[in-house]
Amino acid sequence: MLELKNITKKFGSRTILNKLNLTIPDREILAIVGPSGAGKTTLLRCLSGLERIDSGEFLWDGQEFDPTAPDSKSHIIGVVFQNYELFPNLTVIENITLAPTLVLKENAEQAQTHAQKLLQQLDLTGKEDLYPYQLSGGQQQRVAIVRALAMEPHILCYDEPTSALDPDLRTKVGEIILKLKSNNKMTQIIVTHDMEFASQVADQVFKVKALDDKKVI
């Protein structure tokens, strides 16, 4: 179970997140919705360690962790970025196995087997040796999901997963997210402004409101 307690994040004098509290039970899908500029992405960036919070704490199963710390104990979150951020100079399989071999010290064979299994699950068999530019947007997104999963995070976060997809693919990514919940027992967080999508896949919808600038402390 992931708990966020009193999370506050400021950029200069602007408070983006103010004493935010949130609990995400295991194997649930939480959608974080709200208008642009309300701090959805900032919340996800704090959670994944790309921004440092000003105060508050993150708890995983009751244990406090620092998402910005590089140690393995703090590795709770995997991220699928809005524009996927695959590495263009690496093939699909290299994109996926790079971090597991360098960081988790899996040997090449382990990493390959693990990657193949995930690729198969996400309908990407046969794409191993292609470069990202040779894939469609939907395929790139699925590679990004596999790449994040290969690091075996406890929670997978998506930043605006439907923003770049046409309606068909939007349904498909929804199915993938639900499948990861039922088959892989994944806890997932979706940051989106797509209310309809959120209500279709999420167990819990959390609405963030833009903080009034006057409330700045």
């Binding site: 994944s48 360690g49 790309l50 970025f81 951020e85 590495f87 971090a99 960081v103 994040a148």
Partner: peptide, 12 residues
């Protein structure tokens, strides 16, 4: 974003 995705994958 390339640096950030590397960081999230915990590459040093």
């Amino acid at each position: 974003g390339q640096y950030e995705s590397a960081r999230v994958l915990r590459l040093n």
